[in-house]
Amino acid sequence: MKIIYHCYGGTHSSVTAAAAHLGLLPDDRPPQTEELLAVPFFDTKEKNDHGDITIMGIDQYGNEICFVGQRGKPHLLENIVNSLAEHFAIPGDQFKLVNVMYKVNLSMKVGGTFSRRFRWINSGRPLVAWGTAKAYGQILKLVNFVKARELR
């Protein structure tokens, strides 16, 4: 199965969720800034990467863990993916879309905008990392829920 985490830019919350799913981030405490910045693709994707579903890795059950940015339009992503699956005979149990966008806090939004849109990386990146650490509990809860459902 392909599990696709998605958020606005596909570079902070969805990447964090995918990394948590793959065990690249701790599951018992919020990550340090250095740990977050060491996650592949964290705070690196640009606007022209939006929509490009990227595989981060394969979990212990053989699921491909992916992430993507959808510019705050999850319905576009969901409509395309679901209707393409229908037309190309891809079974619905072969993929799962998980919206992480609503786990994003204000610090992540502001830091992400500074870093990605305005290219103020020196001020934006620490702020978005701090915000991600704050939101990590909620993101982890969602990831654990997804994992639990996949195990059923």
Partner: peptide
Amino acid sequence: LAMWSRGDGDMTGKIVKSFLGLFRINDY
């Protein structure tokens, strides 16, 4: 097949290509 949206054509095109690419579908 046909799809349309208002804006974000670059993104919708990439979603199609990358999603079908995940399933190694190239015959389109």
